[in-house]
Amino acid sequence: MIKFDHASKRYPPGMNALADVSFEIADGELVTVGGHSGAGKSTLLKLISAMERPTGGAVLVHGQNVGSLKRSAIPYLRRNLGVVFQDQKLLFDRNAFENVLLPLTISGFPPHEARRRAQAALDKVGLLERQRAMPIMLSGGEQQRLAIARAVVGRPNLLLADEPTAHLDAETAADVARIFREFHAVGVTVLIATYDNGLFPTARRLVLDHGRLQ
C-alpha cells in the first residue's frame, strides 16, 4: 500500500527533513512513526498525502509514485486518504456536522448519502448528539474526535494521523487511540505519527532520528 524507496526531502537552504528512507506498509497494518520533535515524522506523512514532494527517491501509494503525480491528479489521491492533521484544521464557522460533511461534498457524494455518512461518522466517534455544536463549543478531545470523523467519513482504506493525541490528557488520549484501533480492526491501514508509542502497543513501530529511519 505504501512504499518509501530511498526517499529524501531536503528543504532549502540544505536542511534534510528526511534522508534515504525506505520501508513498506502492507494493507491493513497499524504502524506508528516515532521520534523526537523535528525528526521528520510530519514530513513523512506530508509526502504520502502529496502535501510535499520528495527531493530524492520515490514514495508510492497504492502503486502510484506520488512524487511524479500531475498537479491535477493530486486531489483524487487525497480523496482516498483520511488525514488527521496535527493542528486539526477544523472550520470554526461551521458546525460539527458541516465539518464532517465537507470531504463528501468535495468528492461529489449525493446530498442524501453524504448526510447519512456524516451522521454515521459522528456516531462512530461519539459526537452525533453534538452535531450542531460549533467546534469552539467542543472540548479538546471532542475536537480531536471531530477531526477523526472528518478523516474517516469518506471510508478511506488508509488513515494518516499526525500527533493525534498531543495536548490531550491521558484519559482522552487513550479514548482517541481506541478509536484508531477500532478502525484498524475493521481493515483500515493506519499510520500514526506519535511521540507516545505506549498508546498503540500492537502497532509496528518506525522510529526516525534526524530524518533517518532507525
Binding site: 498525502s49 491535477s72 486531489p75 483524487y76 488525514v83 492533521f85 484544521k89 465537507l102 470531504p103 468528492s107
Partner: peptide, 10 residues
Amino acid sequence: IELSRLLGAT
C-alpha cells in the same frame, strides 16, 4: 481553501 485542497478539492 487550504483545508479543501488537503481534502481533495480540485
